[in-house]
């Protein structure tokens, strides 16, 4: 898979946001002036590099993106992907067109998944179109789009030292919502990991902290896969993913790895369903 489309660090110069007492993002509308045509051309280029010449049809039913129109915090933009057609969805990709590494995440679903609703938190570096592309079981592609106003999310300093940011790296928690017998269970997976973007400056050396991010994360219910996530620098630090799975009474296994060889595994026991 081509996972790094047009990754240019030229956008470093546009590293701008992080709201504080003083500054509002309005004046730093990087990418704000691009025309719809320019955006469409960029998307075409990105889509071709990821999906080749496979046709992508537009959809307003198979997948929907919910994101704040204007991000409150460019380094943590909550995204909800809604895919109501259970059984039809094989995978979903999230692409943030104007991020330095646009291909933010790909979720490939297994038999234990209920992909109806998926939430994750991303970094957004520019005013940008965001695309969700689903692949259905019959191998067809469908896209949905939303425009998001944010800037500087990838380069925003974390407000703590790298050492502090890496404390407890690989720790995980899982919260389970109350469930009913025979119904999918909603779960929240939290992973401690700085997900360094490679565009954040180290506070002591004043060099850029090398990118270190979760690149693969697999969630299984017993032996059945729920999903595999392929991730990149656009996922916010301390990743949190909300998803749903079909329980079979067995523990939930999570295996995560990062691009620098880190590997972590945890097991969680879902509560018994209540009526």
């Amino acid at each position: 898979m081509t996972f790094r489309i047009g990754k240019t660090l030229s956008s470093l110069a546009l590293g701008l946001a992080l709201a504080t007492t003083a500054l509002t993002p309005v004046a730093w509308a990087a990418g704000a002036s691009d025309t719809d045509q320019e955006r469409a051309a960029r998307w075409h280029e990105i889509a071709t590099s990821i999906f080749g010449d496979r046709p992508i049809a537009q959809t307003d039913s198979l997948v929907k993106i919910d994101a704040p129109v204007r991000a409150l915090d460019a380094a943590l933009v909550p995204i909800t992907l809604t895919m109501p057609n259970d059984g039809q969805i094989k995978a979903v990709s999230l692409i943030i067109d104007d991020n330095p590494a646009p291909y933010a995440a790909k979720f490939e679903f297994g038999p234990a998944a209920d992909p109806a609703e998926l939430k994750l938190r991303v970094r957004v570096n520019n005013y940008t179109d965001m695309h969700a592309v689903v692949e259905t079981q019959d191998g067809k592609l469908y896209e949905a789009k939303q425009f998001v106003k944010a800037s500087g999310g990838c380069s925003a300093p974390m407000g703590m030292s790298d050492e502090e940011a890496m404390k407890g790296m690989g720790d995980m928690r899982m919260k389970f919502a109350e469930s009913q017998p025979g119904k999918p269970v909603e779960a929240t997976l939290m992973v401690r990991h700085p997900n360094f973007s490679g565009m954040q400056m180290n506070q002591v050396t004043r060099d850029y902290t090398p990118a270190r991010y979760i690149d693969k994360l697999t969630v299984s219910a017993g032996n059945q896969k729920v999903f595999t996530l392929t991730g990149d620098i656009s996922i916010a630090s301390n990743p949190v993913i909300n998803f749903a799975f079909k329980p079979d009474g067995k523990p939930i296994q999570v295996a995560a790895s990062d691009n620098q060889g880190g590997h972590w595994q945890h097991s969680f026991t879902p509560p018994s369903p209540t009526n």
């Binding site: 590293g15 946001a17 992080l18 004046a27 300093p157 030292s161 954040q200 180290n202 506070q203 002591v204």
Partner: peptide, 13 residues
Amino acid sequence: EALSARGEFYRKR
């Protein structure tokens, strides 16, 4: 260290 991390970022803005 806080200014090292953020100073230039704020200055550009």
